[in-house]
């Protein structure tokens, strides 16, 4: 019985230690290093520009943007990226929920856009780790954007 209890404790400890280590890695101070790595507001504007161009060429999702004001969309995105990466910008557009209301965005479409932006950042020679700093901020928006939430 004692060894059994010890095994339970050991296993629980290993599980806890794995997550504690992971959370420690995760708990970085908010800073502007990612904003700088992208090349500031100009760099993020290039990401928004190139990303939307790729979206507009993507047969999976381009129809969703048929009615969009593209220059305005690019500008709003660039300022949103800037704000998300602690840059000197305030995002003034609609909330993600408002902006996508009635669009019935499916998870696969959300991901298609994410893939287009990854490719756009590849085009701009942005390192994968830098890309992930932005993707990590955008990914949770799936909860507000997708028609039935995401991963609940």
């Amino acid at each position: 019985m004692f060894t059994h209890v010890m095994r339970v404790i050991r296993t629980a400890f290993l599980v806890a230690a794995t997550f504690a280590a992971a959370i420690h890695l995760h708990a970085a101070e908010p800073d502007r290093s990612a904003f700088d790595a992208f090349g500031g507001t100009d760099g993020l504007a290039r990401v928004a520009d190139r990303g939307i161009d790729r979206v507009l060429a993507d047969p999976r999702i381009k129809d969703s943007f048929a009615q969009a004001n593209i220059p305005h969309l690019k500008m709003e995105l660039a300022s949103q990226f800037c704000a998300l990466l602690n840059g000197p910008c305030a995002y003034t557009g609609k909330s993600m929920k408002e902006a996508h209301a009635g669009m019935n965005v499916r998870e696969a479409q959300f991901n298609a856009l994410a893939e287009d932006f990854q490719l756009a950042m590849d085009d701009l020679k942005i390192p994968f780790t830098t890309q992930n700093a932005l993707i990590s901020k955008l990914a949770p928006m799936a909860h507000a954007i997708n028609e039935n939430g995401a991963g609940e």
Partner: peptide, 15 residues
């Protein structure tokens, strides 16, 4: 499973 995108690390723990 936990993906820490901002550090490009994936952690898995299974009981």
């Amino acid at each position: 499973s936990k993906l820490f995108l901002d550090s490009s690390i994936l952690v898995n723990a299974t009981l």
